[in-house]
């Protein structure tokens, strides 16, 4: 177990270094001059050069990268070019919000996807299967942006059921999480349907029925945990999709999260913030996948963590 954790940690570090390099390269490959962005279009060339020098942006790229990583190792994420606040302060305020939103979206995905998938499998090729499959696919094909706007207009603005945007508690979370979840639920619906259909065909299900077990118990005690295994695996990948969705949803709902911060930092070429948000997302994905693997071993006794 310890060896397993050490190996996973090693892998995670390699992944994070790789991601940091690629992100660093990309921020410099895009057209635009961070120094010029900081001082504004009317500052003189001299001022721009001064800022460039102060920030170390005149050094070769690999030196800049090594400097950045050196500071990172000391827990220093640097200062935002944009508002001169420590990056960590910016992120810390928003991290919890985003984690809540991503988690909420995931819960909604499961809350729709799992029952829908079960219905589809249990009523395979019957009307309810077609209805539920259609709904899931329909939800998937809605643009998240548009769906979010619709919900804001109808449910928040007109009906006043939920706040229009911002944060402040579970009520603020509902609409953005539902938007995220509706769009992602179709994957789980299909996955659960396919895997449950496969499980229902297995010999051990026939054994359960041969023991006189009624259908409800066959489905939930004997089949469900086997059928859910692929969904757990998928959840690991889904985290990154969710984070992608979060960037957009936070814009739509004016939700102060890391996604919104990332979006603004890209617009402003605020390199330290870009780096920090991307690395944070990567850490999140790595940790989530680790949790998923542990969960996987927990559900399936054939899997051992080694």
């Amino acid at each position: 177990m310890l060896a397993y954790i050490v190996r996973r940690l090693g892998g995670a570090i390699v992944v994070l270094i790789g991601i940091s390099m690629v992100t660093f390269l990309i921020t410099f490959a895009v057209p635009g001059d961070p120094a010029r962005m900081i001082v504004g279009p009317h500052a003189s060339m001299q001022v721009v050069e001064q800022v460039r020098h102060n920030l170390g942006l005149d050094k070769p790229l690999y030196i800049q990268y090594l400097n950045y990583m050196g500071r990172l190792l000391h827990g220093n994420l640097g200062y935002s070019y944009n508002d001169n606040l420590p990056v960590w302060t910016l992120i810390r305020q928003r991290m919890g919000n985003t984690a809540q939103l991503a988690f909420g979206g995931w819960i909604v995905e499961l809350a729709i996807g799992i029952p829908f998938g079960l219905i589809s499998a249990l009523r395979h090729q019957k009307l309810s299967d077609y209805v539920v499959s259609f709904l899931a696919t329909f939800g998937f094909s809605l643009p998240a942006f548009w769906l979010g706007m619709e919900l804001i207009y109808n449910v928040a603005y007109k009906l006043h059921w939920f706040p229009i945007g911002g944060t402040g508690g579970i009520r603020h979370l509902v609409l953005p999480a539902v938007t995220l979840g509706i769009v992602g639920a179709a994957f789980y619906q299909r996955l659960i349907k396919a895997s449950m259909l496969e499980v229902f065909d297995q010999d051990y299900i026939r054994t359960a029925r041969a023991n006189g077990v009624p259908p409800f118990r066959v489905t939930f005690h004997h089949a469900f945990r086997n059928g859910i295994i692929p969904a757990v695996t998928y959840a690991g990948m889904d985290i990154s999709l969710l984070l992608g969705g979060v960037v957009l949803i936070e814009q739509v709902f004016n939700y102060p999260g890391v996604g919104e911060l990332a979006y603004m930092s890209i617009n402003n070429l605020d390199v330290p913030v870009i780096m920090a948000t991307v690395l944070l997302a990567a850490v999140f994905v790595v940790v989530a996948n680790f949790v998923v693997d542990i969960l996987y071993a927990f559900i399936d006794p054939r899997i051992t963590l080694s």
């Binding site: 297995q202 359960a208 029925r209 005690h221």
Partner: peptide, 27 residues
Amino acid sequence: DKELRRVRGNDVSMIFQEPMTSLNPIL
């Protein structure tokens, strides 16, 4: 169905050809 379930595994039981797959892997 309900009456039949009371018979299965009770009055009549069955064992199958494939012991490798006839048991539930996660129970």
